[in-house]
Simulated assay, not measured.
Amino acid sequence: MTKHPAKDNKEPEQQTDKGGATRKPGTSTTEWIVAGISCAVLLAVLGYLVVEGLSGRNGAAQLVVAPIEITATDGGYVVEFSVSNRAGKSVAAVEIKGELRDGDKVIEESGATLDYIPQDSERLGALIFRSDPKARELRLFASGYAEP
C-alpha cells in the first residue's frame, strides 16, 4: 500500500515568474491600489450621471438672441447675431426672426433657421435686410424650435 500525504497539510504553492524569482500567489498591492482607484472613478461617474439625470434641467429652452454687428453690403444690410441656449435642453431647427419697426408698424422682416443649438451653448447667424437697421428699431427673437 502506498501512503498518500494528508491533503489538509498542503501549503500554498509558490509561483515562479519569468526572472526565476518566486512569489506568493494572490493579489499584489499594486493591483489593489489600481482596483481601488478604478472603483472610486466608477462611483464618481455614476454619481454624476444620477445627479445630472435628476437635476430637472430638461425644461423649456431659454433662447436669448442678441445683435453683434450691422454691416452694409451691395444687397442690403447684414445683421450678425448670436443665440445663447441657457437651458439644459438642446434644440434643433431654431427659427430666428428679425423685424425693423417704426413704432408699432413693422417695416421689414427677415428670418433664419439654425440647425442645432446644444444646451448651455451659443451659435452665430445673420439676417439680411434691404432697409438700414440703424435707422429703425431692430427686434430679434426666436420664434420656434424642434426637439432634436
Rank of each mutant, 00 (worst) to 15 (best):
F141P: 00
L54D: 05
A112D: 12
I117C: 06
T113I: 14
V64D: 12
S55Q: 12
P12F: 10
A93I: 04
L46I: 15
K134G: 15
L43G: 10
T71N: 01
D17Y: 05
K7S: 06
A93C: 07
Y116D: 02
G111P: 00
L49Q: 14
E69I: 10
P5E: 09
L43E: 08
G20Y: 11
E69L: 13
Q62C: 05
P67S: 12
T113M: 12
D8F: 01
D120S: 13
R123Q: 13
D8Y: 03
G125Q: 01
L140V: 09
A66F: 02
P67M: 07
K105S: 14
T73S: 05
V78N: 06
S28M: 00
S82I: 08
T29D: 07
S28Q: 04
A93F: 07
W32G: 04
K97E: 10
E109P: 01
D120Y: 15
R123W: 08
V51F: 14
P5T: 08
K24R: 12
K18N: 08
E52P: 01
T29C: 00
T71E: 13
R101V: 02
L63C: 06
G20H: 05
Y116Q: 10
R86P: 02
G98C: 02
P148F: 10
E122C: 12
D120N: 14
I96G: 01
A112Q: 05
K10I: 05
G53E: 09
R139C: 01
K105N: 14
A35G: 11
I107P: 04
I70G: 01
A66H: 04
K134A: 15
P12S: 08
E122T: 15
